[in-house]
Amino acid sequence: MSTSTLNAQTKGYCLSVAITSVASALLVIAKESNEGLLKFMKTVTVHHWVTHGIFNLVLFVALGMLLAKSNNGQGPAMDDDKLINVTVAGFLLGCAIVAGFMLIEG
């Protein structure tokens, strides 16, 4: 039984930040390792980085909306401390993956 004091929108978008941060970092590795993907992302908009930003924004909004509506509109069944841990860890993991990859491959 979750004992969250946070509203559904907050819970949904917190998890969305965590998931999108990691997904964004994995997309960095994928596009930097795959010339075809990088070229494709360059053709979608004026710059692969712009395409990357749009991908992140769409994923963030879509996941946030879906997760906020989950669990009969109450948002993910998770207590506050666990949600905070997942949000912070997801964001930091995303940053660490990007920095680590650039340190090795840059």
Binding site: L6, Q9, T10, S16, A25, N56, G94, V98, A99, M102
Partner: peptide, 24 residues
């Protein structure tokens, strides 16, 4: 630069989260 331009994308989402948290 490579790290900054990509970490910024995640930071942007974290900043967007702030007004949502403030609705509580």
């Amino acid at each position: 630069m490579e790290t900054k331009e990509h970490v910024f994308l995640a930071l942007l989402l974290l900043g967007t989260l702030l007004p949502i948290i403030a609705t509580n």
